[in-house]
């Protein structure tokens, strides 16, 4: 394996470790013990102590940390302090909502960004291009949860096309699940698509004035031929670098969107755990999101080097 990959892998692992430490420290140096929080203020000292021992919270913090990390790596996440339910299946079922939501959002975003970005770049001297660019500017300004509520008003309240909230499980009906994800995915994807569209536009504009495109035209390529053959890959480069940013935007956007549409995903689980002070679940979920962001950055970095021979994987 090339040296770059080793180094990059190593820094990724170190970043993950540092992130887990950060999360652990923030959520464990709290006023009051979790046992006290769970049992309420009326609980006797003996009861609190008993629960503390039962949960392993009397161990030194570094032991608790190692225990937590070990659990994460082996997917033994333990049980919730509050509900007593095992955490892993709960997160698993939440992810069966969130992962498709994020992917659908990405799909919508790319489907919006590519044509609008390219067209507004190709027509940047004409009114249509300017209008498109202004529209994406507006799209960026509308937060996804505001857009979600507007979509509910239009599609669910007035047109009665799609459900305004709730989720039909995949096992019940795949079509029903897709229907309940439609509005959330559109709200999520449109906003990310507007952001991405502007990067696509800038990238295409840069390519349009590139000398190699003129060379291709001088060889006798038509404009669209030259753009397809030389423009696409070159324009993709800067877009790849923001894809990581986009994906983390989608993941965090999903947290809010799930609240808007009351979807039983990881975001809703996170919020209800915060409300219940179910800290171990919060800790797991925050770490999960951070890990997704960190690993995405790694993948984007590798992808960039695969596409661009000037940097390459070797150096």
């Amino acid at each position: 394996m090339p040296r770059f990959l080793w180094r990059r892998l190593l820094t990724t692992i170190l970043t993950l470790l540092a992130a887990s430490l950060l999360v652990f420290v923030v959520l464990n140096f709290l006023p009051g013990s979790p046992a006290q929080v769970i049992l309420g203020t009326q609980a006797t000292r003996a009861a609190v102590r008993e629960l503390t021992v039962k949960l392993g919270l009397n161990q030194p913090l570094w032991m608790q940390y190692l225990h937590w990390i070990g659990g994460l790596l082996t997917l033994h996440l333990g049980r919730s302090y509050i509900s007593g339910q095992p955490i892993a299946p709960e997160i698993g079922s939440a992810l069966s909502v969130t992962a498709p939501l994020v992917l659908l959002g990405l799909l919508v975003g790319v489907a919006v960004a590519m044509p609008t970005g390219v067209v507004s770049a190709l027509r940047h001297r004409r009114a249509s291009g300017t209008i498109l660019a202004a529209a994406t500017q507006l799209g960026i300004a509308i937060p996804n949860f505001v857009l979600g509520i507007l979509l509910i008003i239009v599609a669910a309240v007035y047109l009665r096309l799609l459900p305004a909230s709730g989720f039909t499980p995949w096992t019940t009906s795949v079509v029903g699940a897709l229907q309940s994800l439609a509005l959330p995915a559109i709200s999520l994807g449109l906003v990310e698509g507007a952001i991405l569209s502007r990067y696509v536009r800038t990238a295409v504009l840069g390519v349009l004035s590139a000398d190699y495109l003129r060379t291709a035209r001088a060889e006798g390529m038509r404009r669209h031929q030259a753009l397809l053959r030389h423009g696409m890959r070159n324009a993709a480069l800067p877009v790849i670098t923001v894809l990581g940013l986009e994906l983390s935007g989608l993941v965090i956007g999903a947290v809010v969107i799930e609240a808007v549409f009351t979807l039983p995903g990881a975001g809703s689980l996170l919020l209800s755990s915060v409300a219940n002070r179910d800290l171990i679940v919060v800790q797991d979920l925050v770490m999960l999101v951070a890990a997704v962001v960190i690993v995405t950055n790694l993948l984007v970095d590798i992808m960039y080097r695969v596409v661009d021979p000037r940097i390459g994987l070797g150096s």
Binding site: A210, D211, Y212, T215, E219, G220, R233, N234, D308
Partner: peptide, 19 residues
């Protein structure tokens, strides 16, 4: 263009597709 009439540009550093 390119068949009967060809052109060589001034900037060789940027006139080729880098990828």
């Amino acid at each position: 263009r390119g068949d009967r009439l060809a052109m060589i540009f001034q900037e060789p550093m940027t006139a080729l597709d880098p990828l």
